[in-house]
């Protein structure tokens, strides 16, 4: 079992990082009140963990018995029949889904699932909750229409409750790392721990996975041991170096092959652009940074609107090459 899963807190009492939020949620639930909840925050901050703990608190250990179902849904629309296949994760008390998986038809699927859940409402038994919970992952990917149609469905229970999930305190990440190391019987030197925290970018999952990888590479840890970045990150840095070295159609062609490889390995194009920009910014002159950021933002926006990622990635790189070359030439002319 990965350490990330092994040390995932399963009840509110075990939380170290978002102790205040966990306490608040516990208070909220014990008062018999469950509002709609929106949990947001950067990846690896513990959103999913806290939702699972919330469900456990509500329904008891039964929620951990989940089954994966891949079920075809046939939905009757006014003009046509819609058939989609959707994988859901469910227990007796909750249902979890990624509505964005079904693309632009998400609206109908979400409505249909809510209808179905409402139909099979649990019977009121002493001490049992009379509702089920629908966990919608990645709602920010839900289309605008789907969000509009959810609005009506939710409106009766307007009390939405917002929580900010952040991992803002670096010492907390360190604390968790140390606890885990202790439990695993590892010796964690301070210098190495600090480097891990820096590598993790406040993402706890990243920190733990990183530590586990490092342990496989070399143990016992030494104080100046390097944390090696993920393969794709190293690959993107390589691309960044390439395009800084030579700006020519030939090189663009070579870089294209590398981009294809990244995409073929299911690295999301947004991440590629972001990482590439971060790498480029490290090496660029201050005068040109603003323009490069502008192009990155512009092409990332286009990428969201369009459908073929490679066009926009390539366009960004071509644009960057052009900007960089002009800049270098202007410096030489001075």
């Amino acid at each position: 079992m990965l350490w990330v899963d092994k040390y995932r807190p399963s009840t509110f009492d075990n939380f170290v990082v978002h102790k205040d939020i966990a306490d608040n949620l516990k208070k909220l639930i014990s008062s018999g009140d469950t509002p709609h909840t929106l949990v947001y925050g950067p990846p690896g901050a513990g959103k999913k963990t806290i939702v699972m703990a919330l469900l456990r608190q509500l329904f008891g250990p039964g929620v951990e018995k989940v089954r994966v179902e891949s079920k075809p849904w046939t939905i009757q629309l006014p003009t046509r029949k819609l058939e989609v296949e959707l994988t859901t994760l469910s227990s007796n008390h909750h249902l979890e889904m990624n509505p964005s998986d079904v693309g632009y038809n998400d609206r109908y699927v979400v409505q249909e699932i809510i209808k179905e859940m409402a139909r099979s409402r649990p019977v009121e038994v002493q001490g049992q909750k009379t509702f089920k919970v629908l966990v919608l992952n990645e709602v920010d990917r839900l289309s605008r229409e789907a969000q509009q149609s959810l609005r009506r469905t939710m409106e009766k229970y307007t009390s939405a409750c917002r929580l900010i999930m952040v991992c803002s305190n670096i010492s907390k990440v360190m604390e968790v790392l140390k606890t885990v190391a202790q439990n695993e019987g590892l010796n964690l030197p301070d210098g190495f721990a600090a480097r891990l925290v820096g590598y993790a970018e406040r993402n706890l999952r990243r920190a733990l996975l990183g530590m586990e990888v490092c342990k496989v590479q070399q143990y016992p840890f030494t104080d100046n041991q390097q944390v090696s970045p993920a393969d794709w990150e190293a690959y993107v840095s390589e691309i960044a170096l390439d395009i800084m070295r030579e700006q020519s159609p030939k090189n663009l062609y070579l870089v294209r092959g590398k981009l294809y490889e990244l995409l073929a390995n299911c690295i999301p194009p947004e991440l590629i652009i972001k990482k590439l920009l971060a790498e480029l910014l490290k090496r660029l002159d201050d005068d040109i940074k603003q323009e490069v950021v502008h192009h990155a933002a512009f092409f990332e926006h286009r990428l969201q609107e369009g459908s073929k990622a490679i066009f926009h990635l390539e366009a960004f790189i071509a644009r960057f090459m052009c900007t960089y070359k002009t800049f270098m030439l202007s410096i030489m002319a001075d």
Binding site: E270, I273, K274, L277, K289, Q290, V293, H294, A296, A297, F298, E300, H301, Q304, E305
Partner: peptide
């Protein structure tokens, strides 16, 4: 639906 990080960096730059 553009990326928040990039857009914020862009706008502040």
């Amino acid at each position: 639906g553009a990326d928040e990080h990039l857009q914020l960096l862009h706008v502040t730059s």
